[in-house]
């Protein structure tokens, strides 16, 4: 029984790790280490409820845990800086492809949003969830979720004005 449960769980994690890690990375504003920690924490929680959610929607459960933890993270801990042994790679103009540059700009812009705004924007535009489902995932009223998403998009519009060209 335990072996079967562990096998199914491992198969799910191995299959969905990349997608969930990308979601966690967007939710954390591009912080790779924090995204790994967040995903590990969510998957550990998934292990204890696996018999209940395995047949339904384990990915939706992980998404909910991830989004709520990311939206809550600013109140729990300050993730702004952490000491490292080596300096991270600095962005140098000209030696990166355009895609990587856009990704870096996007993550940098997402990092400037509040955690609630970031979670709402990611769920709304990356996961393509309707407002009602975003609110249900974040555990807040629909109006609040819509407001977070609208304010987040408005701020991204200013920050990414030179990356995403306006139509005209």
């Amino acid at each position: 029984m335990e072996q079967t449960r562990a096998g199914e769980y491992d198969a799910f994690v191995a299959a969905r790790w990349s997608v969930l890690f990308h979601l966690a990375r967007l939710l954390t504003g591009g912080d790779r280490h924090r995204a790994e920690d967040l995903l590990q924490e969510s998957l550990v929680k998934l292990w204890f409820v696996w018999p209940k959610v395995a047949d339904e929607a384990p990915e939706a459960y992980v998404r909910k845990v991830l989004a709520r933890a990311a939206a809550r993270s600013a109140r729990r801990r300050w993730w702004g800086e952490r000491p490292v042994e080596q300096l991270p790679e600095v962005v140098a103009a000209g030696d990166m492809s355009a895609t990587v540059a856009e990704r870096s700009r996007l993550e940098a812009a997402l990092a400037q949003l509040t955690p609630q705004q970031r979670a709402a924007v990611v769920l709304r535009y990356y996961q393509d969830l309707p407002d009602r489902q975003v609110a249900e995932t974040l555990g807040c009223p629909v109006g609040t979720a819509r407001s977070h998403a609208a304010r987040g998009v408005a701020r991204l519009r200013r920050l990414l004005a030179d990356v995403i060209e306006p139509v005209g």
């Binding site: 990349s18 997608v19 990308h22 967007l26 895609t99 990587v100 856009e102 990704r103 996007l106 924007v121 990611v122 535009y125 990356y126 393509d128 998009v153 991204l156 990414l160 990356v163 995403i164």
Partner: peptide, 9 residues
Amino acid sequence: LTQLMQQDR
């Protein structure tokens, strides 16, 4: 924005 989020995986 949606396209940018989904393409740079």
